[in-house]
């Protein structure tokens, strides 16, 4: 039976990698309850738990072509869920300080290098933002410049809270790929500043 199940799963993952939405929905329905319960248990908030589910499965969808390579999909999803739950838990407190600290770590030792690094990062960031669709640019500005929360942005732009979160994730992903030549992906944690509550 186990073999049958895992063969079935491999087939679904293969379909997913080819862009099958029904395969995605199948996977979503099979696995999301567990992610949701884990998140709900540790975050004590249905809103936060829904966001975790969206984050985890959006990653699955955006990286669908890689999914057939995942050896143990259950374990993979669990790892993602844990990470998202933990991030969501910490974000409630001194998230900004956390980001600030991470930002500091990845910098060069030397003050001049560091300044050059930061200028370059800011330049690429601005460039990346300019090439986003208009509504995503607006979301980014509201979050970064005006420091608005998800809820406030959702209200301002007449979108749902989850939709704003989804946009932010896409923006983040886009910017990350643009800035990658300069910085390691982990460094870009600081960008998460605008996905914070």
């Amino acid at each position: 039976m186990a073999t049958h199940k895992s063969e079935n799963e491999r087939e679904v993952l293969r379909e997913l990698s080819e862009g099958s939405e029904s395969a995605f929905v199948w996977i979503f329905d099979a696995y999301s309850p567990k992610v949701y319960r884990l998140a709900l248990k540790f975050l004590n908030s249905t809103h936060a738990a829904e966001e975790v589910v969206q984050d985890v499965f959006m990653d699955v969808w955006l990286r669908r072509n890689k999914m057939p390579d995942v050896l143990n999909f259950g374990a993979y999803l669990h790892g993602m869920a844990k990470k998202q739950v933990f991030d969501a838990y910490r974000r409630k407190s001194n998230f900004i300080e956390m980001i600030r600290e991470i930002g500091y770590q990845e910098q060069a030792d030397n003050a001049t290098e560091r300044m050059v690094q930061e200028d370059e990062r800011e330049r690429l960031l601005q460039e990346a933002i300019r090439s986003l669709p208009d509504h995503q640019q607006e979301i980014f500005q509201l979050a970064r410049e005006e420091g608005l929360t998800h809820e406030a942005i959702a209200e301002r732009m007449n979108l749902s809270r989850l939709a704003v979160k989804a946009h932010m994730k896409r923006i983040l992903r886009f910017i990350r790929t643009r800035l990658d030549p300069v910085l390691k992906a982990e460094t870009l944690f600081w960008l998460l500043i605008f996905t914070a509550k």
Partner: peptide
């Protein structure tokens, strides 16, 4: 809503599957 946000405009029907992960 989550499925819509991820997939775009499509609104797939529920297909309940029972699969427990290890």
């Amino acid at each position: 809503e989550i499925l819509t946000n991820i997939l775009g405009t499509t609104r797939p029907q529920a297909k309940r599957a029972t699969m427990w992960w290890s």
